[in-house]
Design a binder for these strands. Structure first.
Lengths: 142, 142
DNA sequence: CCCGTCACTTTTAAAAAGAAAGTGACGGGG
DNA sequence: CCCCGTCACTTTCTTTTTAAAAGTGACGGG
């Protein structure tokens, strides 16, 4: 077996083993986290609902991001009707656990980008409990 | 003066007033936060040092991102020699305050992307104190 | 002089984004 | 039965961005 320098041939990592670089590989663009935002904070589940975002998703971009997030295990597709077969999108634990990241984006944005909307008091706490880290703190046992 | 829907003509906001969308407007790509990572965690300050990152910056991309981060007030350029005039890059408070965001990326990446490098114990705490939020919380207290 | 370093800049090709129109499965109305 | 409209994409085409690579200019040293 050959191993020269950092051998990454046989694993799933991208440009390096850095967790930041690998997270950016999946989420590092202008649209992906907006999908997660809308599902997590606004409870959107349907393609048509996601298309309504004020940022104006191009439909092909939205379809592509949904596909990628599903492939990455951040979203799951569940059928919600037959005839024609239609799916809704739900966050997995991997997806819900993006909450702290999103929260920090909101904090930083509110602090440093003038004019950004500040969420109403208590809004973020409501979602805190749905994350794995939140559940850990509230002490649900096996 | 026309105002249709949400008027954003006279402000500096991008696609919407959402703090997440606006943060992504600046930081939402595969490279920008890697620059911040290297300056913040690895103490890199020179163009040549940043070029050494394992992810392999294309030189034009690095130059462009440094320019954008400086324009956004995340980095500052300081001369460190004459003849020829050369500059080093330093984080502003706006830049250091990206630490919590980066930290959450590390946590999420470590948890959900197999094989990513986990920072040594105590590594992150070291930087915690340098952020504004860290300083606000009485600087150093266990 | 020529060589090498540093910090970019320019050039060019490939990839991704964005706008817009098209597709297919259906349900309802006339 | 035929046409209309909805939903959830897909395709096509143009523009922009990225990426790879070569080039530039100001030095300093031998």
């Amino acid at each position: 077996m050959k191993k020269r320098g950092k051998a990454r041939a046989a694993n799933n990592l991208g440009r390096s083993a850095c967790p930041i670089a690998n997270t950016l590989e999946l989420l590092g663009d202008k649209w992906t986290l907006l999908v997660v935002r809308d599902v997590l904070f606004l409870g959107k589940r349907l393609y048509g609902e996601l298309m309504q975002a004020p940022e104006g998703f191009p439909s092909n971009i939205l379809a592509d991001r949904l596909k990628r997030l599903e492939a990455a295990g951040v979203l799951e597709k569940h059928p919600y009707q037959q005839n024609p077969l239609r799916y809704e999108y739900r966050l997995t634990a991997k997806g819900s656990d993006l909450f702290p990241l999103l929260k920090e984006m909101i904090c930083w944005g509110n602090k440093y980008i003038q004019g950004t909307t500040v969420p109403p008091p208590g809004f973020l706490q409501h979602f805190e409990e749905q994350t794995t880290s939140g559940r850990k703190k509230s002490g649900r046992k096996k």
